[in-house]
Amino acid sequence: MRVGVLTGGRDCPGLNAVVRAVVRKGVQEYGYEFVGFVDGWRGPLEGDTVPLDIPAVRGTLPQGGTILGTSRTHPLDEEDGVRRIRDNLDKLRVDALITIGGRDTLGTAARLADEHGLPCVAVPKTIDNDLSGTDRTLGFDTAVNVATGAIDRLHTTAESHKRVLVVEVMGGDAGWIAVHSGLAGGANVVLIPEQPFDIDQVCAWVTSRFRASYSPIVVVGDGARPRGGAPVLTHVPSAASGRVRLSGVGEWLAGQIEQRTGKEARTTVLGHLQRGGSPSPFDRWLATRFGLHAVDAVRDGDFGKMVALRGTDIVRVPIAEATARIKTVDPALYEEIGVFFG
């Protein structure tokens, strides 16, 4: 059997560890051949490949990014996209395709599998942790570690200068990174997209913190918005992608806090620091297990499925089910951490 592998969407730590595990087990235990498709869905769309064997993946376990490259190509937007992919898979003698990605990449895999019969197996990756069907997505743990480390460092400068520090983290429409890093880093306010915030309440928490002779840290997800308002954006949809890039709420929030409380406020936008660099030990463990189970699904002919973490077990769920909705922060969980606000 010859198996294709691709990584699509935005990069995240642990992608290479998945590819490594897929190739190692597939070659050593099943005698499979592998081909790497370059730059996400662009690879099968254009037939662009690189050799993928055990020497190619050696030493990649701790390596960030993706040795296969990635892109946000959407083959279903192409008039003849499905035909081109099918023709290229046939030409390259590829019998199955392992797709590693987030909601967009796996949403495409679900449609190709369910509507067009292409033999796809999926692996969930996104630092946002917003894929339903799995307890954790690849890359999330590393992003939380990076954000928590930054918050730890910012506490000392906040206290030294008696100022408010606002930390903007990624997450899109889900506040998982904000909740986890904010709680772990001892933030005094955590704001998430799922719960529109009252700016007067935020300023009251900030003022309360100063009364206790401490300088507050405010963690805000980049998709958070004030009550009754729209997301604060510094990037509008581009003509090329049509996608909105969220960023700007941290700077806006710092300005509002300074104006309303009279306290100096500064913003740190962590941005791509959260998705770059070497994966955490947990993400290496998770990526490796995902890869091992993904190649098992190929062996079993169990296509149209995504490997997922449930507790400590790796299970298989329909890709379409896992991408049908965004997994957001439970209001009860957010309420639980509210005792630390202010």
Score class of each variant (00 low, 15 high):
residue 1 M to I: 06
residue 11 D to S: 09
residue 12 C to N: 04
residue 16 N to G: 02
residue 21 A to W: 02
residue 26 G to T: 09
residue 31 G to H: 04
residue 38 V to E: 10
residue 39 D to H: 14
residue 57 V to K: 10
residue 58 R to W: 12
residue 62 P to S: 11
residue 63 Q to I: 00
residue 67 I to R: 15
residue 69 G to R: 04
residue 71 S to P: 07
residue 73 T to A: 04
residue 74 H to I: 09
residue 75 P to N: 10
residue 94 V to G: 03
residue 96 A to R: 10
residue 99 T to S: 15
residue 100 I to E: 06
residue 101 G to P: 10
residue 102 G to Y: 09
residue 103 R to Q: 15
residue 105 T to C: 11
residue 119 P to K: 14
residue 123 V to A: 10
residue 125 K to V: 13
residue 130 D to T: 11
residue 131 L to V: 12
residue 132 S to E: 07
residue 133 G to R: 01
residue 134 T to M: 03
residue 135 D to M: 07
residue 136 R to L: 15
residue 139 G to V: 15
residue 145 N to C: 04
residue 160 S to L: 03
residue 163 R to D: 15
residue 165 L to Q: 07
residue 169 V to S: 02
residue 171 G to F: 03
residue 172 G to P: 03
residue 174 A to R: 11
residue 175 G to Q: 13
residue 183 L to S: 13
residue 184 A to R: 07
residue 189 V to Q: 09
residue 195 Q to C: 00
residue 195 Q to A: 03
residue 196 P to F: 01
residue 199 I to M: 13
residue 204 A to Q: 09
residue 205 W to C: 09
residue 222 D to L: 00
residue 230 A to F: 08
residue 235 H to M: 12
residue 240 A to S: 11
residue 241 S to A: 06
residue 250 G to A: 09
residue 252 W to L: 06
residue 257 I to C: 05
residue 258 E to M: 13
residue 262 G to R: 01
residue 263 K to N: 08
residue 272 H to M: 05
residue 277 G to R: 05
residue 282 F to T: 08
residue 282 F to Y: 14
residue 287 A to W: 04
residue 290 F to H: 12
residue 301 G to V: 12
residue 303 F to N: 06
residue 306 M to D: 14
residue 306 M to E: 07
residue 306 M to L: 10
residue 306 M to I: 03
residue 321 E to L: 14
residue 324 A to K: 14
